[in-house]
């Protein structure tokens, strides 16, 4: 069996900034199975409203706990924001294909994150803590109200660069303003997660410079298991499901 359906107890649900929350769940079996880039599919409510489960990348997984870092944007995520300690949630996971682990020869690892797309890179950087490559996070946020401390990333040996649309924190502009920090050297891997236009910009940058990488994509999901074929996106190899074939795809595989 590759995944499980379990009832997870809320350990903590912490408001991080105006819109972001850090939810900690007790889910020992899940915590052991999770790989960076995989997600969990959460039933945010009993009954039929909202109807679908909601997918969230795993932010951290250790000591029997699984964390997600999420933004309250709509009905489902706002309900999730209201969950309290000792509430329980029906969780399915871990789902999807993880990021490919960089080999020993890789010298530079670049995480490019737009907004809440930063989530999967925490667990990834936890696992890569001992990897000798130069590691950096290029983070693009909307404004100060949408930023958060980079301390945990720094602890994992990741250099963090921040850009905000309004310049309230870091450089003013899109995350692409930060691409200049990337040394264009061989043995570089780029990992991107965020809004589709951002990933498109990363993909075209990577193509221009001949760099390889992967992106975690988003699409509305029903099953999360590859069963309904509802979350398909167009790739160079035809339609592929984000939940089962992805969410991680090679940067040059996705058609924007």
């Amino acid at each position: 069996m590759h995944q499980i359906q379990t009832t997870a107890k809320v350990i903590a649900n912490q408001k991080v900034n105006d819109a972001y929350y850090l939810l900690t769940l007790s889910a020992p079996a899940l915590a052991k199975m999770v790989k960076p880039g995989q997600f969990i599919h959460i039933r945010v409510n009993e009954g039929f409203e909202p109807f679908f489960r909601r997918p969230f990348s795993v932010y951290r997984a250790k000591k029997g706990q699984v964390q997600i870092f999420f933004e309250a944007v709509g009905r489902g995520s706002k309900l999730l924001a209201r969950k309290k300690k000792n509430d329980t949630l029906d969780v399915l996971g871990p789902l999807g294909q993880p990021f490919t682990m960089p080999g020993k020869g890789v010298q530079q690892i670049v995480f490019v994150a737009g907004g809440i797309g930063v989530a999967p890179f925490m667990v990834f950087s936890d696992i890569l803590k001992k990897h000798k490559a130069r590691k950096m996070l290029l983070y693009g946020g909307r404004a100060r109200a949408h930023t958060f401390s980079m301390a945990e990333f720094k602890k994992n040996g990741v250099e963090a660069f921040v850009a905000t649309d309004d310049g309230s924190v870091g450089v003013k502009g899109r995350v692409s303003e930060l691409f200049k920090n990337i040394e264009v050297a061989p043995f570089t891997l780029i990992y991107a997660c965020g809004p589709k236009p951002m990933i498109a910009a990363v993909a075209s940058f990577a193509k221009e410079r001949g760099l390889k990488g992967e992106a975690s994509m988003e699409e509305v999901m029903a099953c999360g298991l590859g069963a309904c074929l509802g979350c398909s996106i167009l790739t160079t190899q035809g339609y592929k499901t984000v939940c089962h074939d992805g969410p991680v795809f090679a940067l040059d595989e996705v058609i924007f």
Binding site: E219, A222, C231
Partner: peptide
Amino acid sequence: GNPPRRICETPAGMINAI
């Protein structure tokens, strides 16, 4: 199959065009 989006959530249900 059909181009995305292929599914959407509706009250107590969903619409699909896979």
